[in-house]
Computed example of a mutant assay.
Amino acid sequence: MSLKESIDKATSAELTEDDFGLLLDVVDIVKSDADTNIEESVNIIKTKLESNNANVILRSVSLLDFLAENCGAMMRGQIAKRSFVNNYLVKLVNDPKMHNSIKYAVIKEIYKLSKSFKGDESLRAMEDSFKELQKKYLYLCQQAVSEVDGTPKPAGGEEDEELSKAIEMSLRETGPPFSERQSTSVAEQPLNVPSAAPEYAQAPAPAPVPAPEKVRALYDLQSNDDDTLSFKKDDIIVVVEKVNDDWIRGCLNGNLGIVPVNYVEKVPQATERELAELVTLLDNSFNVEVLLSKLIDLKTRVASQPISSQEFESILIRDQIPGKLDQLSQTRETLRQILDLYKLKVLELQSMQKNVDASVELYHQLLREAKNSQPLPSPNPTTFGFNPQQSQYQIQSPPF
């Protein structure tokens, strides 16, 4: 098997986790002819790091780690070249369209290699790059340091699974998070011609969309990092996805960013039972006011003229005050819990209003920019907006 074939297998887009056997196969081939294979392997990895597939990049980062640790000083020298570090690793982290899970994996690898290369002045590029990244991606770098220096977790564990799920979700919802995407010509696009459907065939009803998970901020967090969400205490953040055990990606006031989970708490969903309890409490509010009125009258009577203990007890029994107070004591704790819940609901509604305002403003901004841009060629109606003489789709303005 050639070196390229071996690297292709170890960094295949079909791999959702590292295959250590395939990684070690690459190491063995590189070491069999180090003078030739070291430079060639690094050049192949460069092309892999420019891929538009998240799995390919993650597997390439892992392969880079294996080669640095197992293929000697010549390999380390190639990996620590500033041109390689800046143009292929730091560039990934600084790409604004790159998914945060990819950024974190690269940052963690840069820190790990900076520790491994420490003490060799010719390999300082890794250490210098990590220090620069700390200024811009403080929280991601802190998490990387904590994970690398802490107790290592077994490969393929829960955190790796959650990371894979987060990447898969991001790719499914927003497409590959990369600055350069492969353009596909029309000729390569399959034509899906639907077969004749029965006259009364109906599409299946869509599955109900679950209510989004929300969290409430426990502390203020102000960050200059574009990838990290800034917020204030009691802000309600809508969770877009879970990045890993320590980070989530959330939306607040029209902004998206990552959030450390130890800065927030989950907002409980209001259940039908709690709503029913609230309605019951509101229905009983008249009884509460009547009881309060009787206690105020009793206090006024006692203050105006002394009464005996026997008469006092007689009044309490006649108006059923002890029993009603017992009922209200049991209700008080439930009322407090529901009030806390609906205070959060008010905060949720306020946060939703801000997101609605931000969405409307962004929408109108995009319309203004589209209107001011150069007009596009008018589509031919007989080809449904597609010109057979061209190899790209015709982009049409929406019919506003």
Score class of each variant (00 low, 15 high):
S285V: 02
S351P: 05
K324Y: 03
I307S: 11
S351L: 08
A358D: 01
R368D: 12
N355D: 14
D340L: 14
Y363A: 03
Y342D: 03
L339H: 13
T334R: 12
E313A: 05
V356D: 09
V346L: 08
L328I: 00
E313T: 01
I338E: 05
L292D: 05
V346C: 05
R301P: 08
L367V: 08
Q350S: 08
V346Y: 06
I307K: 09
V356I: 15
L347P: 00
R301W: 13
T300N: 02
E369G: 02
Q305G: 02
F312T: 02
K343Q: 14
Y363T: 06
E369I: 08
K294S: 00
E369V: 06
L292F: 03
S329A: 13
M352C: 10
E369K: 11
K294T: 00
V360G: 00
S309E: 11
E348P: 01
D326C: 09
R336H: 07
L298M: 05
K294E: 03
R332E: 11
I296V: 14
F312S: 04
E348I: 03
L366M: 15
N287S: 12
N287F: 01
L341K: 09
E361F: 10
S329K: 13
L316P: 00
I338H: 02
I296N: 12
M352Q: 10
M352K: 14
I338R: 05
P322G: 03
E289D: 06
V288L: 13
R318P: 04
V290I: 14
G323E: 10
Q350T: 11
N355L: 04
L325W: 01
D357C: 00
D357M: 05
Q337L: 12
L298P: 00
P322L: 07
R368F: 07
D326Y: 08
L335K: 07
Q327T: 15
D340W: 09
Q305Y: 04
K294P: 00
D319M: 05
S285D: 09
F286R: 11
Q337P: 08
A303Y: 05
D297E: 13
S351F: 03
S314N: 07
V288S: 07
Y363M: 03
L325M: 08
T334C: 13
A358I: 02
L316I: 01
Q320D: 09
F312G: 06
L362C: 06
L341P: 00
S285I: 09
Q330M: 12
K324C: 02
M352L: 11
E369C: 02
D340K: 14
L328N: 00
F312A: 08
L325A: 04
L298G: 04
A358C: 02
Q350K: 14
H364S: 10
L349D: 09
S314R: 09
E361L: 10
L344A: 00
S308W: 07
L316V: 01
K324D: 07
Q353R: 13
T331A: 15
K343G: 14
I338K: 04
Q337K: 14
A358Y: 03
K294N: 01
E348T: 08
S314H: 06
L344P: 00
Q337Y: 10
K299F: 03
S359H: 15
S314D: 06
V288Q: 01
P306R: 13
L349K: 13
Y363W: 02
E313V: 07
